[in-house]
Design a protein around this nucleic acid. Structure first.
Lengths: 218, 218
DNA sequence: TTACGTTTTAAACATCTGTTTAAGTTGATG
DNA sequence: CATCAACTTAAACAGATGTTTAAAACGTAA
């Protein structure tokens, strides 16, 4: 009975799963290899045997979640663009193509909503866009595809404006995923308890309006 | 010749200033007391003598920057509201009251633009809104004042919507401050090199449009 | 000068960090 | 059974971590 790479009984797989949970909860740098291997019922040396170093383990965890999401993003954008051959693809559909794959990743149970949010947040907050070498080409391609889709959707935007407004939108998503639970807490219930789907809709509405905003003379 | 608390020759002050720089550059948890005291030409034990613990040193650094900014925010909002007694204060002015004190903090040289951005970003990313006990009442008051100002500016917003859209706007600011430099880098110059004042204007334009957005049937 | 509270210091504390070693175990193949 | 690679293991490595200690230096006032 061969152990497949996905076999949850395999040490490598157990370490990977414990690592992603702990990284999301507490951060990449703070979590120690002994925390991880302790939770995974494995020996400390297993990390260096299977991954080479802590840094490479971090890369493996990131790759595992970032690659499929970015692939789905491009596929979804392709599908939308195929349907909008006559009129240009509207902004909210571009944003949807970016956000929905994350939603699928959450609801498919790969990670809980809260954990996944914190994980994506730490990817930005702690690593500052510095993704592992292996995922950078895909990431670059995805970003280029979305920038040009955005500019076709809002032709009056200069390239510079388009880039900054994409950056702004990314800030909305990251901050909401990471700290949406905190907002619910500190508001004392006044922020309600909207579903993740509802929040994504609100984000799209907010960002679409921001991206389409036109200068007003003050 | 008495040493005032602000005397840069005092050990306490030198430790505080080294700490804030290193925290901004590398993060609160990762920077060690020996990194800090090394940069401040002080003894490791000085931290525990003057502050009690590393955690209390972190609190002191946060307090030092967050308190004056939040005070200025409330004052500026008061000044704006005093001038708009007839018509309601527009959204972009509310956002301006929130953002400008940060701008003043940067240009007054308390911290460089880049360092300050990273510092504010880490406050959210690493500490998740968990501010030291001593600044929480002021923060709560400031948030309440801005929420109500926002609702007067856009009356059709429910309280829940207003809170979430404030949260979204905060995400834009935090992410832009923290990772604006990264955007400039990875875009290969295509994002230009706008001044911090220009970026703040763009943020206000984006967020104002997002906050004022109205539902559109899809 | 002496005395006293404040501040600084080097050294040691116990514990934790990522990584390596070398001996062990396993399970399938010849 | 013997062989061999894949894997797991306990132990040790050198260095870093926040904190504490007790002695020394300092500045001021009696």
């Amino acid at each position: 009975m061969a152990k497949t790479p996905e076999d949850p009984r395999g040490t490598r797989e157990r370490v990977l799963r414990s690592a992603e949970t702990l990284f999301a909860e507490r951060g990449f740098e703070i979590v120690s290899l002994r925390d991880i291997t302790g939770a995974a019922d494995a020996n400390v040396a297993a990390v260096n045997y299977h991954f080479g170093s802590k840094e490479k383990l971090i890369d493996a965890v990131i790759e595992r979640h970032v690659v499929p999401i970015n692939e789905e993003r491009v596929e979804l954008l392709n599908r939308f663009e195929a349907k909008w051959v006559e009129s240009p693809l509207p902004v909210d559909k571009v944003l949807k193509a970016f956000l929905w794959p994350m939603l699928r990743h959450i609801t498919s149970g790969e990670m809980s909503e809260e954990l996944f949010g914190k994980f994506m947040g730490r990817l930005i907050g702690e690593r500052g866009y510095r993704l592992p070498e292996s995922v950078r080409p895909l990431f670059r391609m995805m970003a280029a595809r979305f920038t040009s889709a955005l500019r076709r959707a809002v032709p009056q935007l200069s390239e510079e404006e388009a880039l900054w407004r994409m950056h702004f939108s990314f800030g909305v998503m990251s901050n909401t995923l990471t700290h949406g639970d905190t907002l619910r807490e500190i508001s004392g219930g006044r922020a309600g308890n909207p579903s993740i789907e509802k929040i994504f809709e609100e984000i799209i509405e907010f960002c679409a309006a921001g991206i389409e905003a036109v200068k007003k003379e003050s």
